[in-house]
Amino acid sequence: MAINLTINGAAHNVDVDPDTPLLWVLRDEIGLTGTKYGCGIARCGSCTVHVDGQPAKACQLKAASLVGKQVTTIEGLSKDGNHPVQVAWKEIGVPQCGYCQSGQIMSAAALLARSRNPSENEIEQAMADNLCRCGTYLRIKAGIRRAAQIGA
């Protein structure tokens, strides 16, 4: 079935089963591989994207439900990697293996969009569903605090 999606501001016409999760549409149909598969059950957060500005797990979003909505992936977060979260991430050196970081960055960017200077608690709550096996949590927190300064 042909479905029209708007991803990073561009129109994409994809021919998939309407139940296909956005994650696999992005990765296998469109070729936007920055959004990662980690668990497939919305527990790890590696596939976090924005739908109309809100963070969402792409592994749980059915393609057909996204018609008429704005989907933003890590590739579309900024033009040249200069979103305050990305700048802070580079400054501090947050990623290790980097696999979960697209999701971490998307969750962090969404948090800062709704709360300019989040408290420790707000950060932990907003990031609770983003797992990192390398253990970069302390640097993620520091990155969010730094991004809040840059963005202010």
């Binding site: 990765r27 296998d28 070729g31 936007l32 591989t33 920055g34 959004t35 990662k36 598969y37 992936t73 890590i74 590739e75 977060l77 900024s78 990697g81 990305q86 991430w89 580079k90 050196g93 947050v94 990623p95 980097g98 696999y99 970081q101 697209s102 960055i105």
Partner: peptide, 21 residues
């Protein structure tokens, strides 16, 4: 020293084996 692989790991451009197409 800051790591060389960081810039590619904040914008989705770093490619892993799983990303092979």
């Amino acid at each position: 020293t800051q790591r060389l692989d960081i810039p590619n790991k904040v914008d989705g451009s770093a490619q892993y084996a799983i990303d092979t197409r």
